[in-house]
Simulated scan of single mutants.
Amino acid sequence: MLNAVVLSLLGSVLFVWLQIPLGAMFGAIVFLMVAGKVGRRLSLPGPTLTFVQLVLGIGVGVMVPSDLGAVSFPPLMLLGLITCMVGQVSISYWWLHKREQWSKTDSLLGSVPGAMAAVLVLNEAQQKPSGKVVFTHTVRLVTLVILSGVIAADNQAAEFYFFTGEESYWLLAVAAAAWGSGVVLEKIGVPAPYMVTGMLTAIGFGVMMPEASLTIPPVLVFIATSALGALIGIRLVDVSGREFATHLRSGVIATTLSLGVTLLCAYVFSQILEQSFVVLLMSWVPGSIEAMTVAAIYLGLEPALIMLNHITRMVILHSLPLAVKPFLRPGREVSRSEG
C-alpha cells in the first residue's frame, strides 16, 4: 500500500518537474503501470477515492466566482451546450456499443465527455470494473491536452492560477460539511456522493459568503490528481498488449467522433447566436477547464464565457452519478466480445 502511494507521488513530482501537461496524473499512471507490469503488488488506502471525490468536487465548486453572474449566458447557449453534450455522448455510445461490441454500461461510461473522476467512481461501483472504460477516457484526455497545446503553441505562457490568495480556514468547514453529507448519501446508495456534496457545498458557501473568498490549496489539488492517476494506473495494469491496441483504436475513434459533433454544434450555434465559432468550439470541446481557459486567455477569446460554459458542463457531469443511479446494477453486463 505504501509503495503505491510513494511511487505515485514520485511519478507525479517527476512529470510536473518535466513540465508535462497534467503531469501529476500521468506521472502516477505511468509509474504504477510500470510497477504493476514488473510484478509489484499494488494497492491504495481505502479512503483514497473519497479523498479524490472531496477535493475535486470542492475544486469544481470554488471555481464558480461571483463575477461570472455578469457574463452574458443566453438560454440558447445553454441549449447549445446541452445539445452538444447529448450529441457527443450519443455518437460515442453508438460506436462503442454497435461497432466495438461493448456492453451498454461500458459504452455509456466510455461516452461521457470528460469528468474522468466521476466516471471512475461510477466504473468502480460495478461488480467488475472495466479497464477499457478508464483507458478510453485516458486516450481522450491525452488527445485533448495535445490539441489544447497546439492551439496555444505560438503564444507566450501567461501567469494564471485557479487557486490564488490565502487559503481560508472556511475550507475545513466546507470539507467537513461535504464529508458528513456524503456519508449520508453513501448510506442510501448514491454513487460518487462526496464529489456531489463537495461541489454543491462549495457552490452554496460561495453564494452565501462570497466575502470569505474560498480557495483550495494547490498541494491538495496536486495530491488528489496524483491519487486519481494512481487509481487509473492500478486499473490499467491488467490491460494486455492486444487490448491496448484495441482500446487505443476505440478511444481515438470515439474522441474523433465526439470532436466532430463539437465542430458541427459550434458552427450551427455560432450562426444562430452570432457568436464566434472559435469561442463556442473552445467552450464546448470536452477538454479540461484549465487547458481551455488558459488557451482562451492566450488568444483573447472571452475566457470568462468559455470558463462559464465549462463550469456548467462540469456541474452537469459531476451530477451524473445522481442521474445514472437507476441504471446501475450490482453486476456488470458482459460485452458481446467478452461473452
Rank of each mutant, 00 (worst) to 15 (best):
I223D: 09
P210C: 11
I234F: 00
M195Y: 09
L236M: 12
D238P: 00
V174A: 14
L172F: 13
G182V: 02
R242T: 11
R235C: 03
K187A: 08
K187N: 11
A212M: 10
E186Y: 12
P191V: 00
Y194H: 14
A192G: 04
G204Q: 09
A178P: 08
T215G: 08
T225I: 07
K187G: 09
M209S: 13
V207C: 13
E166V: 04
A245H: 15
T246V: 13
G229R: 00
L236I: 10
L231G: 02
T215V: 04
S213W: 00
G189M: 14
Y169M: 12
A224S: 15
A175K: 00
A230G: 09
G241A: 14
A175M: 14
T197K: 01
I203A: 02
R242S: 14
G206S: 08
A177P: 02
I203M: 12
V207D: 13
G165W: 01
A224T: 04
S168I: 00
A245K: 15
E211R: 02
I223W: 06
T197Q: 05
T201F: 13
P218F: 03
L214H: 00
M199R: 00
A212P: 02
F244G: 07
R235Q: 11
P217Q: 11
S181K: 02
M208F: 12
I203N: 02
S181I: 08
V239Q: 07
F205K: 06
V221R: 14
S168Q: 10
G180K: 10
R235T: 09
T201G: 11
